[in-house]
Design a protein around this nucleic acid. Structure first.
Lengths: 219, 219
DNA sequence: CGCCTGTTTGAGTTGGGTCAAAGAGAGTGG
DNA sequence: CCACTCTCTTTGACCCAACTCAAACAGGCG
């Protein structure tokens, strides 16, 4: 799901996404601290960014404050994609983040890799629809831990470990659950010896097979 | 959300999506009857199609048969978009359907309109995430009726009317609800005089303001 | 140490699911 | 034309997974 950035630069174009000048120089890095906003719904889009370091969250809010996180952006992910020059969701940093402005060159190869990237994003979203609409709380949490494991897990002896940059509220708002339910699922998985939580934001999967068995239980 | 198809044709390319030869001649029309499958998850992708007439459903299945419809494809929508040459969801016709094979030409303008199309699709999906993860049954149904009204509603005096090509099961699987809950919400809206159901698959919205007020109720 | 923020656990409630049965069309065929 | 069947929808009764509310716990920090 990483953008295959081709190297040759040509005259700028911006008419295919935002049609506003990009105030950030090409390939310029932008650093943000934990919690800083990156853009808001309704903002004029000022080009695309690649997450180089850290993690961001993209989310939608209702008028009364309910929140749905639509995706977490890890290094390699592109943020700011839009079709009409303005953003349709809020985005902020959930850890210290470095972004790289993406050169929107008139390069056909670039356009194709961007198509492939957004198409891959659509595929992931279809999977997440199934999770939100049709999975139980435990299936949601197990699926979440398994997807992260695939993406950022590091083998550590017999187990697979990784950091959770997001807190329980973020996880709940990503999975369409309450924080209490997320916490209860974590506790249950820990009690059954399937995972361990050596630190509050660190996961070790001891029994990957069992975890994957829980991502889609026969009804 | 319609693809702005540009006219000038150039040598074929297919490396940006499916990398298999397209067996359908360019712009050839393909007709399908209600219920016919268009493609399955795992199938080799054979290019893109535009829905010209009728409605299709794109959906994911779990091993035990739970289903989540990820989108309905109306005329103007593109189906078959993928990033790796194979399909990641099932697709079939829910009415008699005509498809048009899309010429995958090396046209930069085409690539950009495809980017804009998929970006718009992402935006719609973000909205649907909020619906699936954070809305009540009544909010889901009201939002669904309102979105359709925007897209295919026809003004009829004081009310807005349209046909529902999908049955209650399809609606339920799109909104992450049971058919009984969908039916109960329809009945409630009817009893309150907000909508009418002159035929089983025809909706008339009598009080659009009230309906829109229900799409996101204060908690 | 005390405070603050985030997490876990417990208790009670409820929205929406399941199961069951009735109703409503749309075919079909005698 | 009507009886019968089949499928889809509606309605009712009941139940449970996940929510809310509340309180305890844990770690980090000034």
């Amino acid at each position: 799901m990483h953008l295959n950035n081709s190297q040759n630069s040509k005259p700028m174009f911006d008419h295919f996404l935002a049609n506003k000048p990009n105030p950030i120089k090409n390939n310029k890095l932008r650093s943000l601290k934990t919690g800083q906003p990156i853009f808001y719904e309704g903002d004029t889009a000022r080009g695309l960014y690649e997450v180089v370091e850290g993690v961001v969250r993209n989310y939608k809010l209702t008028a009364d404050g309910r929140r749905q996180i639509v995706s977490f952006g890890y290094p390699g992910d592109i943020i700011g994609i839009n079709h009409d020059g303005c953003h349709h969701n809020d985005c902020d940093a959930i850890s210290d983040v470095t972004l790289k402005a993406i050169d929107q060159k008139t390069d056909t190869d670039f356009a194709y890799s961007l198509i492939r990237y957004t198409a891959a994003e659509l595929t992931l979203m279809h999977e997440h629809f199934l999770l939100l609409g049709r999975k139980s709380a435990m299936e949601k949490v197990a699926s979440f831990l398994n997807v992260l494991q695939n993406r950022i897990g590091k083998r550590d002896g017999k187990s697979v470990c990784y950091d959770l940059p997001m807190n329980r509220t973020d996880i709940a708002d990503y999975l369409g659950l309450s924080i209490e339910t997320v916490s209860r699922c974590f506790s249950k998985l820990r009690q059954e010896g399937i995972i361990g939580l050596p630190q509050i934001n660190q996961v070790c999967i001891y029994d990957l097979g069992a975890l994957q068995g829980l991502t889609e239980v026969e009804h």
